[in-house]
Design a protein around this nucleic acid. Structure first.
Lengths: 315, 315
DNA sequence: ATGAAAGCGCTAACAG
DNA sequence: CTGTTAGCGCTTTCAT
């Protein structure tokens, strides 16, 4: 009756009568028993590094809006502020999931990961290997960025990211940037600022520490692998009395809605994070329904120029 | 064996041997069957209005960090950008949840809602009735805010929120503000700006529309029920050529990490949203375990003064 | 068409 | 202590 296979068997009146009675008695099908009997799982898992990072929220939004309504979304976060690892995912898998979405994995993790249910990887910087994935095409936006920075006279550009083990995607952004810069006769001029975490504060501290060295090396532009890092650098630069974009031009990745509100407004590469979520939902739903491993998907990105970037000021 | 009741029954060596063999064969307990046999539900549901609002993310973070590890977290979002309603929650309940957390409900919804499993309401502005809830104590922070604004010479204060049906909490913030202001001999001077949604853009459009009226009425300070709205007002004011805090002082609620980055940095009432999540997790876990309805919890808030507020400038 | 029965994979209770 | 069994609430199949 509640299995959706009754058209033609039960008259509509009777049907609604039954539903009314069911509601009256407070009956609801026990989905656990139902799932067991049918041998079908009902929830898909999402594991990401940090719910507090807007990138995550945007992906999640895309996901919830486009996930097949037959599934519910189980969200798993790593314990204690760390990045997620195999044990986080094991915890997820213990829930017997119909499918799994892994957002922004670390290298180490991805190498040792063996899928045990339909899985799609999100934002792995092209490192997902044979696993179905949704990734970003950064090359054209980053090439444009490189050309733009070059035209402004920046030939000493620095990058801030996190270690490769932590986030493949940030490292991938670095590589694309390096390639783009090289295409314009320059390249990353100094050692990266390699942060421990993805927070504004991490970048704030980190930049204050590294700026003397970068300044001495003549760095005039900083590209951050994540908008949050750029916000931290912005605050740090301000606290150091630096003029942005006069003394230092700044670029982030993601294009969060807050980036036009900072002072100065932040130039970014827009990653359209919400679309990553919707595409992942589409891919995974198909994967689960058909059982066939889908191909990977690559989504575009776009340069957004605002006030945090400007011509080099020689002193 | 996998039920956790083996200490003293199986030797540690044998135990690990079995686990090794299980891993070898790729065996994992079927949690659906397990749950059915034990008659225990394994997931708790979280329904909130909008994953994209950082308030939601912060609550979610608190939740995931402190939820009993026996439970997994199922996240439910309303369809199509609307606020969530009974049908959203019905969808949630179809999943047979051990417990339910409802964040920032609307009036209409809350009035017609009848819990069918252990439920705690979050951020309902004191309107949760008999249901266990986690709420904010705004009065002392808002009284402080009122005194502060009064001392700056602001006696024409305006409020921006959403309709009461949509978010009880924003209306509650308004009431607290009104009470605080009244305590200082003033009060809200003009009609509220009542927005449709919770986005920066909603507030941007709304403020541009209403400012002529507010300006004519001599409004010198605007308090927004949500930081996102304050960001929108900030952008709108800037686009209108207003000087903040010279022409207009601005205050938000939540104290997002972005609020110290805006230009000018935003004064806010810090809601400590993450703690709402951790408290809700604690309350609900206890509720489910003991079966006894827990009492409600009230959490403190705090005024944070930054650059967006200053003395009234008479012209 | 309607009803009875088997069984999904596990757990808990109960014999041996 | 070990092995067997009933049964969780539902779906599906197979007789009636």
């Amino acid at each position: 009756m509640f299995t959706g296979k009754d058209p033609g068997r039960v008259s509509p009146q009777l049907r609604s009568l039954i539903f009314a009675a069911a509601a009256d008695l407070g009956y609801r099908v026990n989905s656990t028993a139902s799932a067991l009997a049918r041998g079908q799982l009902e929830s898909i898992g999402f594991v990401g590094p940090d719910p507090t990072n807007p990138f995550f929220s945007m992906v999640l939004e895309g996901l919830t809006r486009h996930l097949d309504s037959a599934f519910s979304l189980t969200v798993l976060m790593p314990e204690g502020g760390e990045d997620y690892n195999l044990s986080t995912v094991q915890r997820a898998l213990a829930g017997n999931l119909a499918g799994l979405i892994l957002a922004s994995p670390g290298t180490e993790f991805l190498e040792s990961f063996v899928p045990t249910c339909p899985t799609v990887i999100l934002d792995a910087g092209g490192a997902a290997g044979a696993l179905p994935s949704v990734d970003l095409d950064l090359s054209s936006a980053v090439r444009e960025l490189s050309g733009y920075l070059a035209s402004l006279g920046h030939d000493r550009v620095a990058y801030v990211g996190v270690s490769r083990e932590k986030k493949i995607s940030l490292q991938y952004r670095r590589e694309e940037l390096q390639a783009g810069l090289l295409g314009h006769g320059s390249g990353l001029a100094v050692d990266d600022l390699v942060l421990e975490g993805m927070t504004i504060d991490d970048a704030f501290e980190g930049f204050r520490r590294i700026w003397p060295a970068w300044s001495a090396a003549g760095v005039t532009a900083v590209v951050c692998g994540d908008d949050l890092h750029a916000y931290g650098v912005l605050r740090a630069a301000r606290s150091l009395g630096l003029d942005i974009p006069g003394d230092l031009s700044l670029v982030g990745f993601n294009d969060l809605p807050y980036s036009e509100l900072t002072a100065p407004a932040l130039s970014t590469v827009n990653l359209f994070a919400t679309r990553l979520g919707t595409e992942a939902a589409a891919l995974l739903s198909r994967y689960i329904r058909t059982g066939r491993v889908p191909g990977s998907k690559v989504l575009p990105s776009a340069l957004v120029v605002r006030e945090s970037t400007g011509p080099v000021r020689r002193r």
